[in-house]
Amino acid sequence: MKKILFTTILLLTLIVGCSQGEDSSANEEGNGKTITFGVTPWTSTVPPTEVASLILQDMGYNVEQTQADAGSTYIGLSRGDIDVFMDAWLPVHETYLDKYGDSIVDTAVSYPEADAGWVVPTYMEDINSIADIKGKEDLFDNEMYGIEDGASVTAIIDDLIEGYELDIKQVNSSEGGMIAQAMRKMENEEPVVFYGWRPHTMFNKFDIKIIEEDQGYFETASVHVITNSELKENAPDAYEFLSNWSIPIDDVEDMIVQIDEEDMEPEEVAQNWIDNNQDKVDEMLGK
Rank of each mutant, 00 (worst) to 15 (best):
V39P: 13
N142S: 11
L90R: 11
E113F: 10
D250F: 12
E240M: 09
I147L: 05
T34A: 12
G117W: 02
V16I: 11
L139G: 05
D167P: 02
Y123H: 08
F37W: 05
R184A: 14
E143K: 06
S19M: 14
N188S: 15
S53W: 09
S174L: 04
E233G: 12
M284F: 09
L285N: 00
E162M: 09
Q20T: 08
S129V: 06
A108H: 05
T49R: 12
D167Q: 09
D58S: 01
A26D: 10
T154M: 06
A131P: 11
E213H: 13
A26L: 12
T154I: 03
G176P: 08
W197S: 05
Q65L: 13
Q181I: 05
S243Y: 12
Y100L: 04
V225Q: 01
V120K: 01
T154C: 07
Y123K: 11
N204G: 08
I9C: 04
S229G: 08
L242C: 01
W118N: 08
I15E: 15
S174C: 04
W245Q: 00
G17D: 15
E125P: 03
K280W: 10
L77A: 02
G117K: 04
T43Q: 15
E29Y: 15
T66M: 03
Y111H: 00
D83G: 14
T95N: 14
Y123W: 07
S243A: 12
I130C: 00
S24E: 15
I179H: 13
G117E: 07
T227M: 09
R184H: 15
D98T: 06
E265A: 07
A26I: 10
M86G: 06
D250T: 12
I55A: 05
F206M: 02
